Computed example of a mutant assay.
Amino acid sequence: MIEAIKLWNEPNNMSHWDFGIDKDWSIFSRMVRLAGEAVRAENPLITRVLGGMSPIDVAFLRRMSDQGALDEVDVVAVHGFPLDWNHWQIHEWPDRIAEVRAASRHPVWVTEVGVSTFGAEEVQEFGLRRTAELLLDQVDRVFWYSLYDLPKAWPATTRHREAEGSSYYRHFYMGLIKEDGTPKRALRHLADYTPQMGICQWFHFEDPRLDDAVAWLEKLGVKKLRTGLSWADSHRPNADAWFDQQMSALEDFDVTLTYCFTPGSRGINDHHTSPPQQVEEFAEFCARMTRRYAK
């Protein structure tokens, strides 16, 4: 069921890793090395993926290589949203992949790519079809982000909130299905590309959408799913019960499982993006989750 473990998410994006504290990513690099070793010790056959770069930055990837972060991963990942946030056009996807391949000996996966309906559903419809044309023959894994819109009552995972202007609100329109359960125009095309194309869907702690999501994914022919288990959530009461429920519901999918987010009490700062006080604790979390779900 677990085909890959992803170590963190968007480490070169302030919304997921505070590089104001870890200015040269040396803490992150050591954390990834230890976590990769821990995962390998639990399951030497599982694929280990470096948290997806967002934005795609070859200089960052070279820094990861120089600092040894790539020594304990098997795949490097990229995220791209050229119709919403990136400063390049959608037709440039093959060039972006080629740049990353030239800078690393590792295979490249696209573990998040998506288009919001902030402007119009037709933009997402075009974006899904064009993305499939550009990427499915280029890389081994493509995960469309996401199945559901982010509920408006929930915060987006960003450090900047409304200071981003309209860019912030695009986070809430990335799904193929609206918050009220209404399918968008692009949803009808997804089955044209499954099971080759996967879905990236994050589930919040005790997420009420879990069972409905599974039903939709099965209906759409999705086989490959990317989701996550939060180290921060593991400090909540009844965390293991929720993790068990989530992973049991997803047992029929080939899952790329992301380990991410620092418990506030264990960070240098009290924030989920903070580097941890002790990177060994993240490695221990990775080992425990891999032992529990990926044996």
Rank of each mutant, 00 (worst) to 15 (best):
M1W: 04
M1T: 05
A4T: 01
E10K: 10
T47E: 14
M53V: 05
M53G: 02
S65A: 15
D66K: 08
L70G: 06
V73N: 07
V73C: 11
V78H: 07
V78P: 11
F81Y: 15
L83F: 10
L83N: 14
D84F: 07
H87G: 13
W88F: 15
W93T: 02
E99L: 13
V100R: 05
R101T: 07
A102I: 05
R105L: 04
W109I: 02
E112W: 10
V113I: 15
S116R: 14
R129Y: 02
E133S: 09
L134K: 09
L135P: 03
Y145W: 15
W154F: 11
P155S: 04
A156W: 12
T157V: 13
R161K: 13
E162C: 00
R170P: 03
L176E: 04
P183W: 01
L190H: 03
A191N: 08
C200T: 14
F203G: 03
H204I: 01
H204V: 10
P208L: 05
P208I: 01
V214N: 09
K219E: 10
L220P: 09
K223S: 08
K224R: 15
A232D: 14
P237C: 05
A249G: 08
D252E: 13
V255H: 02
T258E: 12
P263W: 07
T273V: 11
S274D: 05
S274I: 05
F282R: 05
A283P: 00
F285N: 00
A287E: 07
T290F: 12
